[in-house]
Design a binder for these strands. Structure first.
Lengths: 249, 249
DNA sequence: CAGTTTATTTGATCCATCTCAATTCGGCTG
DNA sequence: CAGCCGAATTGAGATGGATCAAATAAACTG
């Protein structure tokens, strides 16, 4: 089996078959709701919140008022400890759900901040029971998202604990390409809306290391461009790099 | 404020107040059910499974048949990818729940193995609805455990991404002391039932580094003993180490 | 659009942790 | 209880990624 850089754009499923790899797959399927539940939810009248760049949606310790669905822009969730260390636990693209972490004691465990100007729709909690009655699949859908979320974090732990810097960056970029792509395609225009510092924090690296890892991918003609606008030239080779690490040859 | 090594045994809450530290706290409160729900569940007739050392309870990909409550011994859950890399995602002591990861598509995402000879009680899934009706608090309790689980993984990510080897080990040992301790006390007899290799994998380190980190704690008289049987002499100083890292003085 | 600030890239050095190798310890078996 | 074997410890050396520092590029401001 070869990893062509030519030919028609690859489907995500094909790429994943290449490596038979679950860990990349998990990180590529973000915690969105089922399409049909999402559509039903979208039909409900919901309040919209506009967030300026860098604005905070909720903070650690805040009471849970509702769940949030990102419709535009990009959010991040961050954990902060008493010593000021912080850890980004996820990036949240349109269609994804934010705020689930507050389920157990009705109090947010992390902070949600917009990276770009963003819009979220609020699924208010006081309507929860009412809405649940109307949408029978909702509870299961939420439990499902919650446990998918769990799986994603476990995969991330594996990536961070077991893979070297360049593989972490490859995995990150590939997962980004998947999430940015429409209808199962891998996006070829990668816009890294988040700063390098955020990627570094998420992956447990430094900005310099991110830069160098991207440089290595550029030198092997897997990606083009620099800064926030990258172009994914050879998605299959990126997937290979993500799965097997930097090619030794 | 001083960190005495003398005096009466410290309550967990006191230790945590020392550092005002959430991250340590999270890792110390395992995902048990509420006491009253747990008691109610315990009253139900449930099948018991005895596991020999190293035996597998379920594997990745297996269908979800039930949730498991550890009653004796120690389990670990492991994620394995197609390349054979593996990542331990948690250790599970008596009273804790295992198998929640399978909620979303009724298929286990990780493997559960006993580290010691262990006993688990099976909360069979086909009785789920029946039991739910009898125990009204159960659904909320499960959602709560699920999201607490999520919080635990996020904390672990922070530990692994932001802290150095010696702090990771200190956090691990302190959390172990908390979980092993009864009624809110910090245990002073630490039995590390899991091999060093498992601790290393969990924390993203090597066995040698674990050994050296423990040696450093021994040299500063925070712990005594070696191998599987350690004695926690100065819990407050261990907590300080976990929170602030190796003392610079 | 020039000037200023901030983010990113690149380079050189250093250090924490890994790797490899050798004991030592502890548990298990006959 | 002696002998065996896997696990844990300890040591010496190699290295990936961090750190420090500088140059470039991009974003923002008036």
């Amino acid at each position: 089996m070869s990893f062509d850089t030519q030919g028609p754009p690859l489907q995500l499923s094909e790429l994943l078959v290449y490596g038979q790899n679950a860990s990349v797959q998990q990180l590529c399927s973000p915690h969105t709701l089922d399409d049909n539940v999402l559509t039903q939810l979208a039909a409900l009248p919901m309040r919209e919140i506009k967030l300026a760049r860098g604005q905070t949606l909720f903070r650690q310790g805040h009471g849970l008022h509702g769940l949030y669905i990102v419709t535009e822009g990009l959010l991040k969730t961050t954990l902060v400890d008493a010593q000021g260390r912080h850890q980004i636990t996820g990036f949240h693209f349109p269609g994804e759900l934010v705020g689930l972490d507050a389920f157990h004691n009705r109090e947010h465990l992390c902070m949600a901040t917009s990276i770009e100007p963003s819009t979220v729709r609020v699924f208010a909690l006081h309507r929860f029971n009412e809405t649940m009655a109307r949408l029978p699949g909702l509870y299961d859908a939420l439990a499902s998202v919650l446990s998918k979320n769990l799986a994603e974090h476990e995969q991330l732990l594996m990536v961070v604990n077991q893979r070297d810097a360049s593989a972490r960056v490859a995995i990150f970029l590939f997962s980004l390409a998947c999430r940015l792509g429409r209808n199962g395609q891998v996006a070829s225009d990668l816009i890294l809306a988040m700063p390098r510092a955020d990627i570094a924090n998420y992956l447990g690296l430094t900005t310099e290391t991110i830069s160098r890892a991207i440089a290595a991918l550029r030198q092997t003609d897997i990606i083009e461009g620099r800064g926030k606008h990258l172009r994914l030239v050879a998605p299959a080779r990126l997937a290979d790099w993500a799965i097997n690490g930097r090619p030794s040859s």
